[in-house]
Design a protein around this nucleic acid. Structure first.
Lengths: 157, 157
DNA sequence: ACGCAGTAGCTGCGCGACGCAGCTAATTTA
DNA sequence: TAAATTAGCTGCGTCGCGCAGCTACTGCGT
């Protein structure tokens, strides 16, 4: 059985602190999309490309949570905005690789430069031991969220 | 000057771990909206109501990042879905208070019950000292994100 | 070698969420 | 009391999205 102190800490984290942060993150994502003049999906797509490198439209559709048709239009917009390029796959002539342009990467990272600076400053008071704890936590939170993504999508209810 | 170990930890956090989590959070938010059969803004609205209690349409519009007109339609949808109620403000007859229904609260928290359980399990290995560190970090990250929202918004701001 | 199912991506169409501008009603101010 | 301000709601155009169907290419089986 958990002691009360610990229970209160966990409850505060999962019921208040983390959800509050998550809500702000979603709002910020929308704000960034509005600021860049693109759809939220487009920003998400650029994030995925920035993290995973070139990918096919089909893979991007899965990552972003769109149908392949909508992903095709999304890529059209990003190409028109000069953020990505369509590159033919020589090995399979059906496939197309979507590749972020330097300008696309620069634009999206510029939008987050302020937040990164703020966060670095907020991390300053923590010692190395604490930073390791935080990193471990963030990674586990990422795993949990990703896992939930694969268990939740049951539209057939 | 920071030692290299510390610099690597901070860089990993702000350039990989946190963005990776944030991307998953945005995807999950969209997945939950799809699952509940409502717009992403609607889910965000329910979150805000859950955390802050009854609010006016204007306040909700600000919190969610919509115009008052779009917020009005959003509330129409949530009323139709049985998630919120419009309650007249007796003190100011122009104003309307939006109040979540028990059913609305229940539905949105049910959608996140799995994630909360997962997260509680992931927090089990951390001792009380580590949990305090994590809580402190999450709160500061929340503050940073919220602050960025007010500095980034519209170019006309 | 040939045909046929499977895969990858793109397009016509309708739906719905959004912003904008304008409206009414109620409150506040001069 | 009249004018200005605030709160919320509605017509209309725009645009992102899913769905279904299409073409092009691959690879499997006979």
């Amino acid at each position: 059985m958990m002691d009360e102190e610990r229970q209160a800490l966990v409850a505060e984290l999962v019921k208040n602190a983390i959800p509050g942060w998550a809500i702000a993150v979603v709002r910020l994502n929308k704000a960034v999309a509005d600021r860049l003049g693109v759809a939220e999906s487009d920003v998400q797509c650029l994030h995925v490309l920035d993290r995973l490198g070139p990918a096919t439209p089909g893979a991007l559709a899965k990552q972003v949570g769109l149908t392949t048709g909508s992903a095709s239009r999304m890529i059209d917009r990003l190409v028109a905005a000069g953020c990505v390029r369509r590159v033919a796959d020589p090995g399979d002539r059906r496939r197309v690789l979507i590749e972020p342009t330097p300008d696309g990467i620069a634009r999206v990272s510029a939008a987050y430069a302020g937040l990164i600076t703020r966060t670095e400053q907020s991390l300053a008071p923590f010692d190395d031991r604490a930073l390791e704890t935080i990193l471990e936590f963030v990674r586990s939170a990422h795993r949990d969220t990703a896992a939930e993504l694969h268990h939740l999508p049951t539209p057939t209810d």
